[in-house]
Amino acid sequence: MTNLILRHGITVVTVLAFAFFGWNAQGFLSVPNLASVLVNNVALLAIAAFAMTLVVRTGGIDLSIGTAIDMAGLAFVAALRVNLGVTIAVLAGLAAAAATGGFNALLITRLKISPFLATLGTLFIGHSLQQLLADGGNPIYVTAASLPPAFQFLGHGLILGVHLRIWLVVILALAMALLLSRSSFGRRLTASGMQVNVAWYSGLPVDRDIALVYVLAGVICGIAGVLLTAGVSVYVPFAGNAFLLNAIGATFIGTTLSRSHVANVQGTLLGVILISVAANGLLLIGWNFYWQQLATGMVIFLALAFTFGGRRLAGGTP
């Protein structure tokens, strides 16, 4: 019974949040507002949180998802500024993010540094790199001359009347859900996340799989980085770090949906929606940015308390 309440608790909280803001905040439930929340709040956070979900599934953590997002944006803008064309620029962005993930993979699987410290180191180095390359952290604008239609499409394009970002979130969510629950790669990852030694002694290629996960997480962040940069036509240094806390929060809130408390795509998506709706609703109620920060922190704290406290009550060890 406790388990049942726990597993559906986040769904209930999300529905309650919708009801509360629908009742109290003027225009919250209007179609334009919800669409704007989806495109501007949910989409990019969801993509970043998917990367986090993948890593957390293996029992790791990635503090450098913001760095991967920023690196992608930087490489994307740099390629556009030298007129390499949008396709090459996108590939450059994804490659830069993949390299960030690859650096993590190297540190974690070759040098056996714990994911926390390894990705922390990457975060540090990425910070310096951006300061050095962006002249101390100044925004780099995409010049007007280099704005082909394909660039506009990346930032604001619609397919069948639905924003490109939403399509990408849906495609990524489906692909990741299939990968995690239906493929042998996904099962190997879950095994590594639960009992890495058992997985290793069972002859699973643990290091290779985990390395692949960090590179993959980098690429997924790269998608978010390119979309973010294309959306605002400017690379803002360290912008990606804003996603870190919320991505971690969403991923761990999402673990409540799973019977075995593993990170999963559906749960993460629900966590992202809860966090985004709370931010938008508070804004509409008239709370300023500062109070929103405080409230978001409290929402995450309460969600975590609910998750882990419930588990402890249910008798499982967190």
């Binding site: 806390l245 971690i248 929060g249 500062y290 109070w291 929103q292 920060q293 405080l294 409230a295 978001t296 922190g297 409290m298 995450i300 704290f301 975590l304």
Partner: peptide, 9 residues
């Protein structure tokens, strides 16, 4: 991490 963001807020 959560108390960090509460404090920062």
């Amino acid at each position: 991490l959560a108390t960090m963001s509460v404090c920062a807020g």
